[in-house]
Design a protein around this nucleic acid. Structure first.
Length: 436
RNA sequence: GGCCCCGUGGUGUAACGGCUAGCACGCGAGGUUUUCAACCUCGAAGCGUGGGUUCAACUCCCGCCGGGGCUACCA
């Protein structure tokens, strides 16, 4: 956790899910980390070794008399507490040979968590139950396993969600019983979804994948996330990852939970995506389409490099996410889509002569480039005494099938003269057929 | 219920106890304009609440209200 280099971050995947195995969850999380462009390796501790080390530590505590076996059921424990005004449960050390293993918690004093963000948070020991560190069958429980792993893996800093703050005294008690020094703790505020519910770790991994699928760039996601619960003194909003690393200070992170607002992420992503170099843009887009856009998966890579580059150029200023791109440039790689509403709105008797005039003007051009195309088309609407839109929208519908596309001159040029004329001709034929 | 954390506009945040509480997203109104975006200008909108300390409180203390977390032989 050293700032500015060399630090190594250990991520412990401790989540399980009834429907999925731990390794599936791990795979998903690692996939998300890879997308976020964070390097990772699996580390030296195997699942099997962990189990043996935990068992040894439990024995150690049992032998030292700091833990004991207790057959009490949860109902009995509840009754015990009820009878004592909610005091922490205390079993009968030394009696039983079976049952869960409980750690003996001191009756006096308090266990205080030194948190980087919240200062000292104290928990009275007399209110803390003698916590179960292992089940009757000997398998360890979370709060015990985590504490042992932290100690044995020599974790220096624990940064995790706020929801673990009240687990921390339990872990501290385990560490204390085993004679280990505790790591430093920082409990970050939780994130809430737009629905007001908390975004849990389990949803978290899925959520990063959703962000990926929604067409956001890793750099934008990192920037946005950093600004949740943290802000700079000088109100800087847009920061490269390098700048983030340089400026971020965990001590400045706020303590209140934050609501995840996707609209701001969209805006931010738009800023990042427009900053991308042409090659990077095409690469990102290509990867995205390959993964999420079945209709484009074959068509895009199969197209001529020149066309792909052109498509990226004309769409770049318009799309805020990668997910919006195909909708805008698909017409360059496939036939026009069928949008009945667009057709009935713009393709009428008034459109036919305008389209025909546009077709002739385009056919006569020497250079089929945006400026030349604009110069050729602009007079047509003028001469007919109609708003430019009356000319351009029918052309757009003829080329793309819809009313939304990149700039019409750019679109025409990118499509090329042959295809552009062919599509306008097809539209004219369809118009003629309709009018009988 | 008990324990713990938190509370600046709709959202995310900034502000040595001291300026008309700043910035960003979003929203509204204009502008630009071939669609949708983008972009430019202007605008509305906030310190949960009641006390206390102080010359002075968003900032410190207490109560209340509100939100959240933990209260498992789950992680």
């Amino acid at each position: 956790m050293a700032r500015g280099g060399g630090g190594k971050l250990v991520l412990r995947i401790e989540d399980t899910d009834r429907a999925r195995s731990t390794s599936e969850v791990a795979e998903q999380i690692l996939d998300a980390l890879g997308w976020l462009e964070l390097d990772w390796d699996e580390g030296p501790f195997s699942q099997h070794e962990r189990g043996e080390r935990h068992a040894a530590r439990i024995e150690e505590l049992l032998d030292a008399g700091r833990a004991y076996r207790d057959p009490a059921t949860s109902e009995q424990v509840r009754a015990w507490k009820q009878a004592r005004g909610g005091a922490g449960y205390r079993g009968e050390p030394g009696e039983a040979q079976s049952g869960a293993v409980r750690l003996r918690v001191p009756d006096e004093g308090e266990t205080v968590v030194h948190d980087l963000l919240r200062g000292e948070v104290g928990f009275a020991n007399r209110l803390q139950d003698d916590l179960v560190i292992a089940r009757g069958d000997g398998t360890p429980l979370y709060n015990f396993a985590v504490a042992v792993d932290d100690a044995e893996m020599e974790i220096t800093d624990v940064v995790r969600g706020d929801d673990h703050l009240s687990n921390t005294p339990k872990q501290l008690l385990v560490l204390q019983a085993l004679g280990f020094d505790p790591p430093r703790y920082a409990h970050l505020p939780l994130l809430h979804g737009p629905d007001g519910k908390k975004l849990s770790k389990r949803h978290g991994a899925a959520s990063v994948q959703e962000l990926r699928q929604a067409g956001y760039l890793p750099a934008a996601v990192r920037n946005y996330l950093a600004l949740l619960g943290w802000g700079t003194e000088d109100d800087t909003t847009l920061m490269s990852t390098d700048e983030l690393v340089e400026r971020f200070q965990i001590e400045r992170v706020g303590r209140a939970s934050a609501v995840f607002d996707e609209r701001k992420l969209r805006w931010m992503n738009g800023r990042f995506i427009r900053e991308l170099e042409p090659d990077a843009y095409e690469q990102r887009l290509s990867d995205y389409l390959q993964r999420y856009e079945p209709a484009a998966a074959d068509a895009f890579p199969a197209a001529a490099p020149e066309r792909r580059r052109r498509a990226c150029e004309i769409v770049r200023e318009k799309a805020q996410t990668l997910a919006e791109v195909w909708r805008l440039i698909g017409f360059l790689f496939a036939e026009p889509v069928d949008d009945a509403k667009a057709w009935t709105k713009w393709m009428d008797a008034e459109a036919a002569p305008l389209l025909a005039a546009a077709r002739d003007a385009l056919a006569g051009l020497d250079r089929f480039e945006p400026e030349a195309i604009e110069a050729a088309l602009a007079p047509i609407a003028d001469a007919a005494g109609v708003r430019p839109k009356a000319l351009y929208q029918p052309i757009r519908v003829a080329l793309t099938g819809t009313t939304v596309s990149p700039g019409i001159f750019d679109s025409l040029a990118a499509l090329g003269r042959d295809q552009a004329l062919a599509r306008i001709d097809a539209a004219l034929r369809r118009l003629a057929a309709a009018s009988g």
